[in-house]
């Protein structure tokens, strides 16, 4: 702070920061894929009303939705080594990136579990009955009848979660990950041009979000292709 604002530095910083976009996207993609797997696993006990597991999953979802991501980040960062040291596994030297990916996967998993459960319950039970009545197996029923209809309901929420998750990755630097934000902090420490760095970072995040939004819109249209014209409004 205290230095004169220099707009030309914004353009100068963008290429340096974009090099670290890969780390940000790596966190995003890994946590979305792992989060989907956790989400499916967590949605099953709720959909099939499995006792005990259902209560555990409810507690897990409630905790993730009730605490900020930054607290979850710190809990995993300090908690996981403590828990694993009880069974004599030492991970104190593990890359901070792994902790970040674990946290964001757990966080996305809870949100996905709710989205999947909601979307599958949104498909009428009559659809399942109809599928069984023409002799489909439960697996065929799920893959051919329920899933294609559920994904249409779930997709806008999934898209929002992915975009929200991208924005959340900007907090990974608090436990020392060298992503775009982390690199930005080092530039600030070196040049003291904080405002220019944050403007450059905002521009990069904004562009990535706009590209994601455009892509999701195309896919959303695809999932709605049999819905007539007014489905895009709903």
């Amino acid at each position: 702070m205290g230095k004169v604002f220099d707009p030309s530095l914004i353009i100068e910083f963008i290429p340096t920061l974009v090099k670290y976009l890969g780390v940000t996207l790596e966190i995003l993609v890994a946590s979305i894929i792992l989060g989907t797997i956790i989400g499916i696993a967590a949605a099953i006990p709720k959909l099939f009303h499995i006792p005990i597991l259902k209560q555990i999953v409810t507690l897990y979802i409630s905790f993730i939705r009730g605490t900020p991501i930054i607290i979850q980040l710190f809990l995993v960062f300090y908690g996981l080594p403590a828990v694993l040291s009880l069974i004599n596994i030492d991970i104190t030297r593990m890359d901070a990136l792994i902790f970040v990916i674990i946290t964001y996967s757990l966080s996305n998993g809870a949100i996905f579990a709710e989205i999947f459960r909601g979307a599958i319950s949104a498909v009428e039970f009559g659809q399942t009955e109809a599928a069984y009545s023409i002799g489909m197996t439960p697996f065929q029923n799920f893959t051919r009848i329920i899933f294609p209809q559920a994904i249409r309901v779930a997709f806008p929420n999934i898209a929002n979660t992915v975009i929200g998750s991208l924005k959340d990755t900007s907090l990974a630097f608090t436990i020392g990950v060298m992503d775009m934000m982390g690199r930005g902090e080092t530039i600030i420490a070196a040049t003291a041009h904080a405002l220019e760095v944050y403007i450059a970072l905002s521009v990069i995040y904004y562009v990535v979000v706009l590209i994601l939004e455009k892509g999701f819109k195309v896919f959303e249209k695809y999932t709605n292709r049999y819905q007539g014209t007014d489905a895009s409004v709903a």
Binding site: K167, M181, Y198, I199, Y205, V209
Partner: peptide
């Protein structure tokens, strides 16, 4: 609306925190 929904809240805090005093 588009910009504020498209960038993380930490950016808004930092931009205001460094930008407004300047």
């Amino acid at each position: 609306v588009s910009f504020f929904r498209g960038t993380p809240a930490i950016m808004h805090i930092m931009l205001v925190y460094f930008g407004i005093p300047m």
